[in-house]
Amino acid sequence: MSALEKTVRNGIRILAQSSRTAPRTVGAFYATALETFRLTAKRPFQFREFVAQAWFIASVSIVPTLLMAVPLCVMVVFQINVLLNEIGAIDLSGAGAGVAVIREIGPVVTVLVVAGAGATAICADLGSRTIREEIDAMEVLGINPIHRLVVPRVLASTLVALFLNGLVTAVGLTGGYLYAVFLQGATPGQFVTAISILTGIGDLMISELKAAIFGLLAGLVACHLGLSVKGGPKGVGDAVNQTVVVSFMLLFLANAIITTLSVH
């Protein structure tokens, strides 16, 4: 048997195994999510853990957010302004910047940072606890790990995503203003006035809703995969990689659905 045939057969075998385990994996994720929602209102609420996790997620997410938001927002606004300049409507650049930054760039950057930095850190933390059998020890002591560990992390991820989206929006609009006014000849007053032509408070609220859902989904995925780690340290690394892939898939799907529903 040639090497190519072996590779093809191994690929077919992996796909077959994945198709058999996929329903069980999805069901386990839904079970974790439902248990998390059920225990969110249970007392006592782990406020100290919530604050610590919110600070931890923010500390690993703020710098990547700024590094991604500035060039991405500026380049998108630059392309919009080039088009507007061609038709003599450069003073409407504020409207284009508002639509691009508030409706899409803010939530998308939040997707990338929350899933790529915050969720992976959560998964690595819980995965390390799992392979050290700390989770099993908590269950033996009668402590529910979902209530003690997962709920504070999911809520912290949701809250930080909201603030990150606001940060990206502020930075993006400021960078777009400076770029359009000082490098592309837009009028400062017209830029600011035009922002509200196509966007308003409703668009900002939808953007914040997207960010909250993104943070919630990323936190749930990270916690579920972190608690499901098997195979020692290698399993933790695999779970972190799966967190990034699964989070991106769910978050972009949620973004498409929410955008479609909000337009109609």
Rank of each mutant, 00 (worst) to 15 (best):
A69T: 08
N81V: 07
A69E: 03
M75H: 14
F56W: 04
P64M: 05
A52N: 13
A41T: 14
I80N: 11
Q53V: 07
E35I: 01
V70K: 06
V60Y: 00
N81I: 05
I62K: 02
L39Q: 10
R43W: 11
I62M: 08
F37S: 11
T65G: 06
F45G: 05
S61C: 07
L72Q: 06
R48E: 14
W55D: 14
P71Y: 03
A52F: 08
T65A: 03
A52R: 12
E35Y: 05
R48M: 11
V77D: 03
E49N: 13
T40N: 05
A54R: 01
A69L: 04
L34I: 07
V82Y: 13
C73R: 00
L72M: 11
C73T: 11
I57H: 02
M75A: 15
A52H: 12
V76Q: 01
L83H: 15
P44Y: 11
T65S: 09
F47V: 13
F78I: 09
V60E: 01
P71N: 05
A58F: 02
T40V: 10
L66M: 10
F56L: 11
V70M: 04
V77C: 02
V63I: 07
A69I: 06
F45S: 01
V51W: 12
Q79E: 15
W55T: 14
M68D: 05
E35G: 06
V82K: 13
F50C: 03
M68N: 09
P71D: 05
V63N: 02
A52T: 12
